[in-house]
Simulated assay, not measured.
Amino acid sequence: MGQVRFYTRSGRTPAEALFDRLDARFADEGWPVSLSEVDEKAELFEASVYFEDADTVDETAVREAFGDAEPVREDLPDIDWMAEVLAGLKPVRAGRFLVHGAHDRDKVLPNDLAIEIEAGQAFGTGHHGTTAGCLTMIESVVRRRRPRNALDLGTGSAVLAIAFAKLARRPVLATDIDPVAIAVARQNVRANGVSRYVETATATGFGSPAFRRAAPFDLVIANILAGPLMQLAPQLARHLSADGDVVLSGILERQRDAVLSAYRIQGLFHRRTLRRGEWVTLHLCRNRAGAV
């Protein structure tokens, strides 16, 4: 008894094709299928399928589904992962923001801007350096610039959109390519009492009518990865107001200069870099004054 997963690693295109095959074969039976990037520099991706009971898995069917890709079998310990994760996740403080789970509501202080996000949902519980860095930068930008509206691009759990809404009390559009993430984001928005301010939408890049309704944005927040951020630079700049600000993260220190160059071409100037471990969060703006 115990969980088991089968996986292979390859480039993006074959990994995506394999993910589609596994999803078509196993999703209707309730077995989770995943696709994740395991090495950005090497452009290496991992396609996996998980089974609840290792003793009853039909390995022949699994290997047939993988086709020419020989899967690796990994037997997983029989652990209540949610309990383990919640036990290890402590509240995260970033400026006035306190990101916490329901089990830590008693840690909220009177002047905190509390954001309740449960682990195990969509990406973004505040514990990763990129999310915490964005929260710190959002507070700084909102206090100084008072943006009238915002975009949280690649919202995941919606923690950043919720943070902006709680602090600025202004409209924010939260988008993601993953409809599951958007469903979770909507739940979190409601749970945190900011439905009045936050609109959610499933969208790839800037391909949604929601952008046309809400743009231009005074503040764009994008915590994704360096590669997609550079690809999206022209579209992002077109949806930014004439004096708008941008907060970018999901960027390794060694990728910082390349990202800054991609946005400098679009007329966006670097104002500040916030470092947390190997990750950086960038603040850019339209206005050259004060840029570095």
Rank of each mutant, 00 (worst) to 15 (best):
G124K: 00
R170N: 11
V33Y: 00
V189P: 00
A291F: 07
T125N: 07
G207E: 15
A94H: 03
A191W: 00
A168H: 07
Q187P: 00
T200K: 00
R5K: 15
A17Y: 08
I265A: 15
S249G: 02
A242R: 14
K41P: 03
M230R: 15
G133V: 03
A181L: 00
T281K: 07
A185L: 03
V38W: 13
D176H: 01
R146S: 14
A237H: 09
R143A: 15
F269E: 11
R5I: 01
P91V: 07
D243Y: 07
M1I: 04
I177F: 02
R271M: 10
F26M: 03
T125S: 12
A161S: 13
E253G: 04
T273Y: 12
R213S: 14
V142P: 07
S195H: 08
A69L: 14
G126L: 05
L160W: 00
A174F: 03
F206I: 06
E16K: 12
I182P: 00
E199W: 01
L135V: 10
A201S: 08
H127E: 10
L219I: 12
M137S: 09
T281W: 07
V247A: 03
V92S: 05
D28I: 00
D68G: 06
H128I: 05
G120H: 08
A203K: 02
L86G: 04
I138S: 05
S36A: 15
F206C: 03
V38S: 06
A83T: 14
L135P: 02
D23Y: 09
L284K: 11
R145C: 12
W279G: 03
C285E: 14
A83L: 12
I265S: 14
A291M: 09
W279S: 08
L219T: 06
V4M: 12
E16Y: 10
G67M: 11
N149G: 08
D104I: 06
L248P: 06
V246Y: 06
V189W: 01
G126N: 09
R288T: 15
N192S: 11
L268Q: 06
E37S: 11
